[in-house]
């Protein structure tokens, strides 16, 4: 169990470093940047109480903000993602609330991978909408920001799925 937690933390830190040092410098078509660290928010333990979950999400976003010098944009987006995450998992994926404690996206066999992906993309979309609309901070620039969010959601999702295939336990390679 402890080894498992250790491994999860190492993978988490690696993803953050990857995000800050490498992915932030990528701009596909000079425009889209994969934010694969959103994956971490989706994978954070489902047994954690909501209070801690919110703090964890906020802190992950804040770390990204400090290194990418984006104020509190990522912190805001991450807090929203972790706040709605469990609701989406119980309502859209049909995981009973009692079983949420033992739910793990990488190990679950009850949920269809496609459904899991859709929920993940929804979370990414919310993250990006907050990120880009708060960055624009003007009604005039809002349509552009929303378009940016949608395009970036596709990029982030594709990259995240690649990462999942790489880190998922061998038995079940799926999101």
């Amino acid at each position: 169990m402890e080894r498992k937690i250790g491994k999860a933390i190492v993978v988490g830190v690696m993803i953050m470093v990857l995000q800050i040092a490498v992915l932030d410098n990528i701009a596909i078509w000079g425009y889209a940047t994969p934010y694969i660290y959103v994956l971490l928010l989706f994978l954070l333990p489902y047994s954690t109480s909501m209070g801690w979950l919110l703090l964890e999400g906020f802190l992950i976003g804040l770390v990204i903000d400090v290194f990418l010098s984006t104020g509190g944009l990522n912190a805001m987006a991450c807090t929203l993602v972790v706040y709605v995450r469990n609701h989406l998992v119980t309502h859209l994926l049909g995981v009973p609330e009692k079983e949420l404690d033992t739910f793990s996206p990488l190990l679950s066999t009850d949920v269809k991978p496609v459904a899991m992906m859709v929920v993940f993309m929804l979370l990414v979309l919310m993250h990006h909408i907050v990120l880009y609309s708060m960055e624009a901070m003007s009604i005039y620039l809002l349509p552009g920001a929303l378009l940016h969010a949608v395009i970036n959601t596709v990029i982030t999702s594709v990259c995240s799925i690649i990462v999942v295939v790489l880190i998922a336990p061998n038995k079940r390679r799926r999101l």
Binding site: M50, G51, L54, L55, G71, G72, A75, M76, T79, M137
Partner: peptide, 23 residues
């Protein structure tokens, strides 16, 4: 309780974003 915490954290985040105008 969690909604309040959520709103609090979002407010902090927003304050940081506004601070970013003088980032």
């Amino acid at each position: 309780r969690f909604l309040l915490l959520f709103l609090l954290l979002e407010t902090v985040g927003f304050a940081l974003v506004v601070g970013q105008y003088r980032y």
